[in-house]
């Protein structure tokens, strides 16, 4: 991204982040932190190609984004997005939600996609809900369905919007371990390392981890580097994000 400005999804006339100069290399694991309403989700939506940048140049694998033409669909599908609340299709079952991208883009029948979907259901402990609609599940589990749906097309880059928000400790630990596995190379993706960009409003779970960190504040994305540089910088925002429980209302 070069000098990119990001508009709000809700109000395209409002710029929420600007002057973004940021390069994500293959195999990177980025954590983008910011308080609620700072524009993390909008940055991720723009990165996923749901809207064009308000200004500047954004390229995915060298191709200008967003991509809406079928001829460049292959590049577009190398990127997956997990929404904060899952954003599942309520008229479909969990099985159908996960299978949809595969069946749509590969034109597979239910029978053809069954084995692949089963692999994801098992890996994410979602088998008991396979035939349920999303409304019958707790929010913690809905996020996993959203993750499975984003991964089933075997993307190279995964954007995850605030996956740890509102999770209990068990689910939080599962997500941390799973993201770690994806970054190193997970069997679900045939041990191919995945490039990850995860947003968060709470830096504590990532304390001390060897990741690349960035923060968003006052419409600016600031690249901090690894954890040691986060601690050295120790800005007011980082201090707030490290004691998120007491800061948030």
């Amino acid at each position: 991204m070069h000098e990119v400005a990001v508009s709000s999804m809700r109000d395209p006339s409002t710029i929420v982040v600007e002057g973004v100069n940021w390069t994500v290399a293959s195999g990177d694991y980025w954590v983008v932190a910011g308080l609620q309403g700072s524009g993390k989700s909008d940055l991720l939506m723009m990165t996923a190609g749901l809207m064009p940048p308000a200004h500047g140049d954004y390229r995915l694998f060298g191709e200008p984004m967003p991509i809406f033409v079928d001829s460049r669909l292959e590049t577009r599908l190398r990127l997956g997005l997990v929404f904060e609340s899952g954003q599942l299709f309520n008229h479909l079952t969990v099985w159908e939600n996960i299978a949809l991208p595969l069946r749509y883009h590969e034109n597979w029948s239910k029978a053809e996609s069954a084995a692949e979907v089963q692999r994801f259901l098992a890996s994410m402990e979602l088998e008991p809900w396979a035939d349920s609609t999303p409304g019958a599940m707790a929010r913690n589990w809905q996020k996993r369905v959203g993750l499975a749906r984003a991964l089933i097309l075997q993307p190279d880059v995964l954007l995850v919007d605030n996956p740890l928000g509102g999770l209990d400790l068990r689910h939080l630990q599962w997500w941390m371990n799973f993201a770690e596995g994806l970054s190193r190379g997970h069997p679900l993706l045939y041990n191919r390392p995945l490039t990850l960009v995860i947003t968060t409003a709470d830096l504590r779970p990532w304390r001390g981890q060897k990741r690349s960190f960035a923060t968003i504040r006052n419409k600016r994305l600031t690249v901090l580097g690894d954890w040691s540089q986060v601690e050295v910088g120790s800005s007011e925002l980082v201090r707030e994000l490290l004691m998120a429980e007491t800061v948030r209302p």
């Binding site: 749901l50 609340s85 954003q87 299709f89 984003a150």
Partner: peptide, 17 residues
């Protein structure tokens, strides 16, 4: 309308559907 309000249309677009 409900699907649109709940962000399901954005989810389809994110999946390039």
């Amino acid at each position: 309308g409900t699907a649109r309000a709940l962000g399901e249309v954005e989810a389809l677009e994110a999946l390039a559907i």
